[in-house]
Design a protein around this nucleic acid. Structure first.
Lengths: 335, 335
DNA sequence: ATGTTCATCTAGATCGTTCTAGTCAAACCA
DNA sequence: TGGTTTGACTAGAACGATCTAGATGAACAT
């Protein structure tokens, strides 16, 4: 209610403490060049007035904004996990994070513009859909880090998870359990769907097995759809593009009276929140959100600060084995 | 790669077009006071240089930032839905949205500070956990709108969904289906858990039924836990605090061979993404994220622009009936 | 006494905008 | 003709911080 009060400025604090603006600035930044006694005096005055630096003014003057721009998709739970982790990592390195969501009527380009306008010193884009050329354009202004996607040209850094290794882990796990008829439900047009699909093909062939890919997508419904297709000629194991798809597949199977893992083993990808739920217990390839986030933030900060470091980082995923995978059913191995 | 290029300023455009900075500013803002011919000339120059206004400088000077600060919890899928809708609504009203997530090591207070620093003209906080006093403190600086929570004192506006009405809808639906033993699994310490719990109690008593509340929480695991408790003395219907909890309850029941909706009806709350999934088909109370978001944004904008409008808005939820509710089983009605 | 060093502090320019108060010429009116 | 209006444009002061260069005075060496 009532009128809104103007927020205090450096000048107000300076007046209150009886010193110059510049000195207050020094104290607030924790920069050297102020006597301990005055430092205390200034801090107290600032505190009493409830002073907080206006980041716009600060950043305007000091080209340093200490701001990392992070673009994510609001509909992807795995992105949310990364956002969480990124906050922690950034603040540990003395940076702030500004978010910009890619949502329904809000394309990636728009999200990026916003981040740039607000003064982000680097861009971290989770699963960018922009092409290498567009990304390169932005990279002329600020360092750009692509997260969860590595085919982004050489102008931008990338932090991704080794899809080949992840898929290999899944295949290996299943083969060890005696499976031979292993199909892959892919991610359709989703980012890195192609990587995983090809990794799966290569890995199967390497082991002398016949790859079989069923088209899918990134959501539960896509999984259900694929599940229906699979029922006609049931394999002994399924590797899904991600956890959400895996969930759809499993629900479809359950509805058809097919039990997991007795009849079919299912492996997801992302090790997301609900893979861990006690009633799901999905075996899944973990991309380790905190690790990826830390790498991306680290990479962005290195670039900003001019530290040389490798242009693209590839994290090695690991397999989290839960209750949806088991030995292949007897006498049902080969085609 | 190579060095990062300085972004062009108003001055650069002015030089290129052979006019003054001020005029460029006028043109870029679409303000009146420039001849059509020069307007074109300036726009072309700006375009060639790839000029974009530096929002920091702009906002610094023009106290108007046209920025709405939105604080949300990264772990709540329903919040993500609201974020989505808020973007659309804000841009329709000529405002931008800056996000700040409340995450693990990142308390609400911190999220709010960030929003303020960056120059948000109003704060929209989804399900604030801060007390009325703290909120009032911020409200002295900028308009504050609390979303999904209404007991926030009179210093801040609130946009919420009528929990009483929502619960009443659920109870009514079940009673119409012949249910009498209806229990409520509450949300524990979650925001608005108390509201729904009390609404449930009142509504049951009003109808001459005996209320029974089982402690729960906001997550799937809490639902499972409650589900186990319920098995001992199965009611004919359950109203869960939210969809996630409902999902847990249902999984627990399914695992115990209890079928839904034949043996027990279940109603969720939020009508979130996964309630709609074809294999879940959860009957749920819909809070209508787009509507709530629009109301909150509208409220914030009104306040900023000094338009008088009611201090708190209460949206009326509606019930989305799907496949988890059915007629009460015969001969199992009363205690 | 004089110069040098050092820590502490300050004046004023600066960042890239917007805003206020003009200037200037052409057009209009009496 | 001379005065007012109007439209197109500009100079220069903000906004609230940081940064550069320099002032001030105490401490110390010579």
């Amino acid at each position: 209610m009532s009128e809104l009060q103007r927020r205090p400025t450096l000048m107000d604090v300076a007046d209150a403490a009886g010193v110059s603006r510049a000195l207050v600035s020094i104290v607030m930044r924790g920069a050297p060049g102020a006597a301990e006694s005055t430092r205390q005096k200034v801090l107290q005055a600032a505190n009493e007035l409830g002073y907080r630096a206006d980041s716009r003014a600060r950043l305007l003057r000091s080209s340093r904004t200490k701001l990392l721009g992070l673009a994510f998709s609001s509909s992807q739970p795995f992105h949310a996990e990364i956002v969480d982790a990124a906050y922690a990592e950034a603040s540990a390195k003395g940076y702030e994070i500004t978010l910009s969501a890619v949502a329904n009527g809000r394309p990636e380009a728009r999200a990026i513009e916003t981040l740039l306008d607000v003064g982000a010193e680097a861009l971290i884009i989770i699963a960018p859909t922009l092409g290498p050329d567009d990304l390169a354009l932005h990279a002329r202004r600020v360092p750009v880090v692509s997260l969860l996607r590595d085919d982004v040209g050489q102008a931008v850094d990338s932090v991704s998870s080794d899809d080949r290794a992840g898929i290999a882990l899944a295949v290996d796990h299943l083969v060890t359990l005696g499976h031979r008829r292993i199909v892959h439900v892919d991610g359709g047009t989703a980012v890195s769907s192609e990587n995983r699909r090809e990794a799966y093909r290569a890995e199967m062939i390497r082991r002398g097995l016949t790859p079989l890919v069923v088209p899918g997508g990134a959501g539960e419904e896509d999984g259900m759809e694929a599940g229906r297709t699979l029922q006609a000629d049931l394999p002994t194991a399924v590797i899904a593009f991600n956890d959400r798809s895996a969930l759809g597949i499993m629900e479809c199977f359950k509805a058809a009276g097919i039990s997991i893992p007795e009849d079919v083993s299912v492996i997801g990808y992302d090790d997301s929140h609900f893979a861990k739920l006690s009633y799901v217990q999905l075996t899944s390839v973990s991309q380790d959100a905190p690790l990826l986030a830390a790498a991306a933030v680290g990479r962005a900060v290195d670039r900003i600060e001019g530290v040389k470091s490798p242009g693209s980082v590839v994290g090695t995923p690991h397999l989290v084995i839960r209750k949806t995978t088991a030995r292949a059913p007897e006498g049902n191995s080969d085609t």
